[in-house]
Design a protein around this nucleic acid. Sequence first.
DNA 1: TATTGTTATACTCTATAACTATA
DNA 2: TATAGTTATAGAGTATAACAATA
Lengths: 161, 161
Amino acid sequence: MSSNKKKSNSVPQSKNVDTIELGILEDVLGFHLRRAQSANFRQFAQHCGHRNVSPGQLGLLYKIKYNPGINQTTLAKAEGIERSTLGEFIDRFEERKLVERRRQASDRRAYALYITKDGEDFLQEITPELFSSEQELGKKLTKKEQNTLINLLRKLTASKS
Amino acid sequence: MSSNKKKSNSVPQSKNVDTIELGILEDVLGFHLRRAQSANFRQFAQHCGHRNVSPGQLGLLYKIKYNPGINQTTLAKAEGIERSTLGEFIDRFEERKLVERRRQASDRRAYALYITKDGEDFLQEITPELFSSEQELGKKLTKKEQNTLINLLRKLTASKS
DNA sequence: TATTGTTATACTCTATAACTATA
DNA sequence: TATAGTTATAGAGTATAACAATA
């Protein structure tokens, strides 16, 4: 190593992640939402990753649990995804015996979706882990701030103004 | 259609998206973050979609602009993605002449990244469209609420407690 | 040996379009 | 004709592992 280069310099060789300049992004809500979502994903993976579901999949399971008999088109709309996309998720849930499709006499085109016993057990097991993930995610905020945040996000996405 | 079925019923055939039960999800921050992010993505697509960049890509472009000479490993860490993933984004930016890789005499393994003139122009054009997207995203909140929301998200993701 | 970046590969999430069965 | 769901296909974003060049 030549003498005019120092390995330990007061200026770090690579900028610290904490000190990267964000410029205009600093005031862009969408940017902060993405970043928060990313943090959430990380916590979720850490606490619930071993269950082999994504946050989105878990959301679907809860929605099926709380809306028994819902059909795929309705659920897809509620999730903001295409029917074809949802169908594949339901396929995988069915393979894992977490969800059941039942044909309806009233409309034999549609499936009514139900959480199975295994699905209920699965949710029972993952729920405390989800709460751990939530706690870790929100640990830099007071309880009051967490409530404020959730309320603002609810208001942001409310379909009725 | 048999007489014991009514087409127009007081109960809608498919549940309204607004009325789907969320149960426990109602109080899960991660769920609301995902939903807000999804709303953001929709607004972004509507206002900036014709520019052929995703919110994540645009974030990278701004970061390169505001951190000229940053290297790929540092940028990847700041973005929370793998070097290999980032490399592909930079490839595409370079093909579009938005970003330039320059070899450094000081460390010939690394590239220093710079926004090009075309990249600057691109950002200049898209920025007002991003602001429109932001405005639409935040329109259900007062200006004060928007500020509160951003501050809470900043606090949530702050690396220093 | 360690680090920067690339390449090859694969998986998940997503959409679009064309299709079948049913209404 | 319209709707519920499936299938085939494609593209974006992501990661892992192995590699070359350089430190």
